[in-house]
Design a binder for these strands. Structure first.
Length: 181
DNA sequence: CGAGTTTGACCGGCGC
DNA sequence: GCGCCGGTCAAACTCG
């Protein structure tokens, strides 16, 4: 990711319609921002101009995240019965990059890949491998602009960054946020 | 051998 | 009710 220009101006109709594809989950009860040592996401939120309250992606404490694991595993395998699914808010942003994966300092494990409608590139699904941390992200290259990678974070890390990365702030300068925080 | 990736199958939500 | 679609699981596989 060397040369990049700002892409997707906020007020373009294109980005507006794309943003509309992401559900806004502010209605869920995210009370407070507990994870103040989550440096990168905090940085993202600042870049996003999110308030801390609205950016409280989830009330994830180490114990809460275990409950989150239960919920998510249940939703995936269809075991969940009678439990209303709690959807976490998502932060989505786009970067112009040759590589799909941003090195944000966390360790991710890929758990799925799907072809999505109206996009010739598959969407990849990643989960944070830190024990008890239930953060997920989706990575997808845009078919309409192959140089742009769209990354969607879901949840809040419950641990310190594993590989402090000085370049992350650099990455942030490339980000164009168009969604839900 | 452990960690991570691939990929087909499965499930739930949603629109018609 | 049915079919489509997105998201997840899990076994097999690859890689260091």
């Amino acid at each position: 990711m060397e040369s990049f220009a700002t892409v997707f101006p906020y007020n373009s109709t294109a980005s507006a319609s794309q943003a509309a594809t992401y559900s806004n989950d502010h209605n869920d009860d995210y009370e407070q921002f507990e994870d103040d040592h989550d440096q990168n996401l905090d940085l993202i939120r600042k870049t996003l101009n999110c308030s801390s309250d609205e950016a409280a992606l989830d009330h994830v404490s180490p114990t809460d995240s275990e409950a989150g694991n239960d919920l998510n595993s249940a939703s995936g395998s269809g075991v969940k019965k009678g439990l209303k699914k709690i959807r976490k808010p998502k932060c989505a942003f786009q970067t112009r990059s040759q590589v799909d994966i941003l090195d944000d300092g966390y360790r991710w494990r890929k758990y799925g890949q799907k072809a999505v409608k109206n996009n010739k590139f598959p969407r990849s699904y990643y989960r944070c491998t830190y024990e008890g941390c239930n953060v997920k992200k989706q990575v997808q290259r845009l078919s309409k602009d192959e140089g742009v990678v769209e990354t969607t974070y879901e949840g809040t890390h419950s641990h310190l960054i594993e590989k402090p990365n000085n370049n992350f702030e650099h990455i942030l300068t490339q980000m164009q946020i168009y969604s839900t925080c």
